[in-house]
Design a protein around this nucleic acid. Sequence first.
DNA 1: TACATTGCCGAGTAAATTAGTCAAGAATTC
DNA 2: GAATTCTTGACTAATTTACTCGGCAATGTA
Lengths: 163, 163
Amino acid sequence: MRLTTKGRYAVTAMLDLAIHHGGGPITLADIAQRQGISLSYLEQLFARLRKRNLVSSVRGPGGGYTLGREASGIFVAQVIAAVDENVDTTRCGGAHNCQDNQQCLTHDLWQDLSNRIYDYLNQISLQDLMNRSGVQEVAERQENGDARTSVSLGRLKAESAGA
Amino acid sequence: MRLTTKGRYAVTAMLDLAIHHGGGPITLADIAQRQGISLSYLEQLFARLRKRNLVSSVRGPGGGYTLGREASGIFVAQVIAAVDENVDTTRCGGAHNCQDNQQCLTHDLWQDLSNRIYDYLNQISLQDLMNRSGVQEVAERQENGDARTSVSLGRLKAESAGA
DNA sequence: TACATTGCCGAGTAAATTAGTCAAGAATTC
DNA sequence: GAATTCTTGACTAATTTACTCGGCAATGTA
């Protein structure tokens, strides 16, 4: 399993979406501001999330993104896989041609590890994350705007969000 | 836990060392040839492994590397940590300042995952890997030279190894 | 003592990836 | 028709990876 900031950003953004779910679509600008992620970068990530039906979008004023299905049916592994495409730790990507068309010495080790990481992350849903102790507190702090100091706002123009 | 080819190379090389242990030091040139890793790159990795006392070296003709301690006392996590320095999946490296000096929304998730991966890899020794079913077969194939076709030999000059 | 062998070290580098920016356009609502 | 929001694609700076290259240091053997 490749674990990069790309995947982290995606999971964080999806969790933000899950937390603010219910009151209509959420704009990427909001997520960008709350989570301190560049808007343009989020756009790229959400393009991939949308292809996998993990989110659905509404255009126009009042538009934004909503979860593609309920939070309990979206798993962390799916989110990471959507943005990282490459989801294993082997050199060969599951094939056995890591070295000169043969299996390398440590192939099985990485294969096992990949499976374990995947299984772990594939059992944690966004709903599970929401229920965790720390998450609600952090979310509330973010809504109060306490964490929007040094955020890179990208091409965000109006700060009409009040706050 | 950062899992890159760098760490994979290191573990593979260490396992090669463990397999060929007992008959005096092993040269990096041998490992490079058997495992299809660039010699100069191996030198860099082994410099770090040596700093952590995972290997010890002997200079001069007949010299090379030996394991720093017995194979059952060297764990995969230690090898990866030695070459990758950065051994966690959080953005902040265990501190809680992932976002504007505050903890980001998914901090705990990555922290948990890091711990799990670490625990898993920290319980697997080189000896364990040697005992695995596939490893011996692959090692034998490599010793017969079956896998030295398209290897990049780096600055290896003489092929006096006689195959 | 010469020299061949091996490790040791630091600088440099091409390719890939990450983490973005920028600009234009399409759908939708007011 | 104007503002808002998603959609798409091209481009780019910084970083990391996976090396290469060259020279020096230690050591064994002739």
